[in-house]
Simulated scan of single mutants.
Amino acid sequence: MVGCEDRLGSIEGRRTALEQIERLCLAVLARRRRLDKEEEGRRVGRRWLVEPEEGERKSGGGGGDAREQRSRARETSLSGNQTITSRGGRFVLGFFTPPGSGGNYYIGIWYGEISVLTPAWVANRVTPITDQTTSELKISDDGNLVLLNQFKSVIWSTNVTTIPSSDSTVVAVILDNGNLQLRDGSNSSLVFWQSFDHPTDTWLPGAKLGFNKITKRSQHLTSWKNKVDPSPGIFTFEMDPTGLSQYLILWNMSRIYWASVLWDGHLSSLVPVGFMYHMQVVNDTDEMYITFTADVANHSMYRVVLDNDTGQIQVQVWIENSK
């Protein structure tokens, strides 16, 4: 009997020792993985979806303290119902689905202070995803902002080739004017890409619509296909690519549907008088464009949009109590 008890005690002791060794090995492996990840981060640089001073990531709940902590957090990706809100809460970046679209999801920017979902910009308007929980918006190793679908295939990218060496810090920031910027983390004036240069159907205050005389590229609006499908529709609003000082609405990118009068140096020849915004036209050796600022003291929100049904440029103002 004594011999059996000694043998059982010996077995239990060896089992305990093996468990301790196993825990030690797991701890070593975990540390090794963490060190490898840190080394990879040093090797490819730091990629953040939001700067701590410029935005916050929301996943629901939380009070003021939690909001402050989130605003200081740096995130590396965005998926599911997670969103990033501009500092003042005016615009939100995240996945959305237009009501009635049949479950198609898009990465977009919408108004944060409007109770009805109102997208102002769409990234993957040509290629929707069907599962936002396994899709991911992130900054890739080469510094580009990319959208991965559930199969981890890139379906949309900023596709910038001028991002510096891989040891730099690259951040993506949603600003309070609705502009999504991909820029240098230590120099906010060094912008590699911005959504203002790639508008969809909505023209926001501060953005410009025009034509670059050197690159021959334009910033133009393209209507949605219909109210539930943000893919490119049949109407386009752009500066005359021939260099004439006028704006055109094209049907199917080929036929002139409408043309403004030639600009004679007076803004009244391009826009109606009495609108509650201030226009500016720039025409120099490099580019020609028009931009505007809104009179936010009188109206809460502006939406200049190319209507998908009529092809008209509509100036819409949202007043919350009127819906």
Rank of each mutant, 00 (worst) to 15 (best):
Asp264Ser: 15
Leu262Phe: 09
Trp263Gln: 05
Gln280Ile: 11
Asn252Trp: 00
Arg255Trp: 10
Pro272Ala: 07
Gly274Pro: 13
Tyr257Gln: 01
Pro272Val: 01
Thr293Gly: 14
Ser254Thr: 10
Tyr277Ile: 06
Thr293Arg: 08
Asn252Val: 05
Gly274Val: 02
Val282His: 08
Thr293Ile: 02
Gln280Glu: 09
Thr285Asn: 00
Met288Gly: 09
Gly274His: 06
Asp264Arg: 06
Ser269Met: 10
Ser268Pro: 12
Ile256Glu: 00
His278Pro: 03
Glu287Ala: 13
Asn283Pro: 07
Thr285Arg: 07
Thr291Glu: 01
Met288Lys: 09
Ser269Tyr: 08
Leu262Ile: 10
Thr285Cys: 15
Ser254Arg: 01
Tyr277Met: 15
Thr293Ser: 12
Thr291Asp: 02
Met279Pro: 07
Asp284Gln: 01
Phe275Ser: 04
Ala259Ser: 09
Asp284Arg: 13
Val273Trp: 03
Thr285Val: 15
Val271Ala: 03
Asp286Cys: 03
Trp258Glu: 07
Trp258Pro: 03
Ser268Asp: 13
Tyr277His: 10
Met279Thr: 04
Asp264Trp: 04
Met279Asp: 07
Gln280Met: 12
Met276Lys: 14
Val282Tyr: 05
Ile290Asn: 02
Asp284Ile: 11
Met279Phe: 14
Thr285Ile: 15
Tyr289His: 13
Asn283Phe: 14
Ser254Asp: 13
His278Lys: 10
Phe275Gln: 10
Met279His: 04
Leu250Cys: 09
Leu262Glu: 03
Phe292Asp: 01
Ser254Cys: 07
Tyr289Ala: 06
Val273Tyr: 09
Arg255Asn: 15
Pro272Lys: 03
Val281Phe: 09
Asn252Phe: 05
Asn283Lys: 11
Ser254Phe: 00
Val282Gln: 15
Trp258Asp: 00
Asn252Gln: 13
His278Val: 08
Val261Gly: 04
Gly265Cys: 05
Val273Lys: 09
Gln280Phe: 10
Leu262Val: 13
Ser254His: 05
His266Trp: 06
Leu262Asn: 10
Gly274Ser: 08
Ala259Glu: 03
His266Ser: 14
Tyr289Arg: 00
Arg255Lys: 15
Met276Val: 07
Gly274Ala: 01
Val281Thr: 14
Leu267Phe: 08
Asn252Ser: 07
Asn283Gly: 00
Gly274Ile: 02
Ile256Ser: 06
Thr285Glu: 08
Asp284Ala: 07
Val271Arg: 00
Val261Ser: 15
Tyr277Asn: 09
Thr285Pro: 13
Ser254Ile: 04
Phe275Gly: 06
Thr291Lys: 00
Leu250Phe: 05
Trp251Ile: 13
Asn283Tyr: 05
Tyr257Phe: 11
Trp251Arg: 14
Leu262Ala: 11
Gly265Glu: 00
Leu270Tyr: 04
Met279Glu: 04
Ser254Met: 01
Met253Asp: 11
Leu250Pro: 02
Trp263Val: 01
Ile256Val: 11
Trp263Arg: 14
Gly265Arg: 02
Ser269His: 07
Trp258Cys: 03
Val282Leu: 14
Ser260Val: 05
Arg255Asp: 08
Thr293Val: 12
Asp286Lys: 15
Tyr289Asp: 04
Ile256His: 00
Ala259Pro: 05
Thr293Cys: 13
Val282Asn: 13
Ser260Pro: 05
Trp251Ser: 11
Arg255Tyr: 11
Gly274Gln: 04
Val273Leu: 06
Val261His: 12
Asn283Trp: 05
Asp264Ile: 03
His266Glu: 14
Leu270Phe: 00
Trp258Ser: 08
Leu270Met: 08
Gly265Lys: 02
Trp251Asp: 04
Asp284Tyr: 07
Thr293Leu: 08
Met288Ser: 11
Ile290Met: 09
